[in-house]
Design a protein around this nucleic acid. Structure first.
Lengths: 213, 213
DNA sequence: TAGATTGTTAATCGATTAACAATC
DNA sequence: TAGATTGTTAATCGATTAACAATC
């Protein structure tokens, strides 16, 4: 009860649920729904009402007793908590299939994640454009990141090159790394890493498929 | 102590760690390392030795007291547990950027996941090949899946179409769905769904970036 | 045999759920 | 006011870690 807000560290289990809350709230908002109770949300999302209230109260009391939560307001609060009230400048490293796919995949633009450039070693690809984004020489990456205040590096290289790329991104000063290479990276503690391990995901699916037969 | 093995359900927390164990064991194997202790593994992977032993003992005693674990053997055991001792036939639904990327991304081939076909509504794309895989008419998907014993459907459509696709895949008889659309699907309980929610992943990264400043 | 390391039980920690008083 | 629903504390459940006996 002393001091300001957010005294305790919030667990990742809670944070992982926030984007999902946000997605449902966004759908409700688009449908013109103004108000929602934890019970109604529970029925939609599948988490218990108790958990929803518990989760939200980690960040403050967004609801109103006897009424529920205001959909638009809660959506905005969660967006803010997630850090979506600003834009993020990103570069992709590796212009292979995966890098190209991510350059072309514009879904996340809406929430302020902008791909600013693509870096590649293969000289054949340097100079072309993908989805109107320049493919540049990997050797020029560090200076580019420094000069353009890039926030996030997206690693789309082979697993053999991924650590070297992570080192260079860290040195250049990104704050976050979105890693698609199937390897765990070592980076300075002030840099955040989020892994998308597609093969792990597929193996997890395989497990459940082979069990349910 | 009665009955056969695996009496209790294994938690997803455990299963999620298995692909990671497997990756490290594979690297060790390639380096020619034959034997590893839970303590050495712990130092590499970052889980506690206790947790590693606990995890592995959910499936049986793969180690030898006073010695440790045989790398090759353990790798194989984990592969089997995950269901990687067979091949999986997959179809991609949606030949947009993401679908094309996945068709081109051949990383998971190595572990027996084979893309057999791509289905698309847009008639302009029907008939072309992507990475030597036929793009076929979405209308023909159900019969194709039935005739070719497809195991997994990969959903790369918009979120608006994803549920309809999931319904059709379920009807056609796939056992698993790998869902890249940013929406949670409803499917019969015997079908396994694994979500890759790229925007959620990016939002999770954004949270940690904005907190560590 | 002595040393090492597993397999497994017990203790701890953390996350989820239940309950209910506060309050709109 | 009565009814509804939150915010929050307490109870439960499950997962992780510690400890150690079993055993190679």
């Amino acid at each position: 009860m002393q001091h300001s807000k957010e005294p305790t560290r919030i667990s990742n289990a809670v944070i992982k649920r926030l984007p999902r809350y946000r997605r449902y709230l966004n759908e409700l908002r688009k449908k013109g729904v103004e108000k929602i109770s934890s019970n109604e949300l529970s029925r939609m999302i599948g988490y218990t009402a108790s958990q929803i209230r518990q989760d939200l109260n980690n960040f403050g009391g967004f609801g109103q007793q006897g009424y529920g939560y205001n959909v638009g307001e809660l959506h905005k609060e969660i967006s803010n908590i997630l850090g979506l009230d600003k834009n993020y400048k990103m570069v992709i490293v590796g212009a292979g299939n995966l890098g190209q796919a991510i350059a072309n995949y514009t879904y996340y633009y809406k929430s302020g994640f902008i791909v600013d450039g693509i870096f590649e070693i293969n000289p054949r690809l340097v100079g072309i454009k993908i989805n109107d984004i320049d493919v540049m020489d990997y050797e020029d990456m560090v200076s580019y990141i420094e000069e353009n205040d890039i926030d996030i590096g997206i690693i789309c290289t082979s697993k053999e090159n991924a650590q070297e790329v992570a080192d260079r991104l860290s040195f250049a000063g990104v704050n976050g790394i979105w890693n698609f290479a199937p390897v765990d990276l070592e980076v300075p503690s002030h840099i955040s890493v989020e892994n998308v391990h597609l093969s792990d995901s597929l193996h997890f699916l395989a497990y459940h498929m082979s069990k349910s037969e």
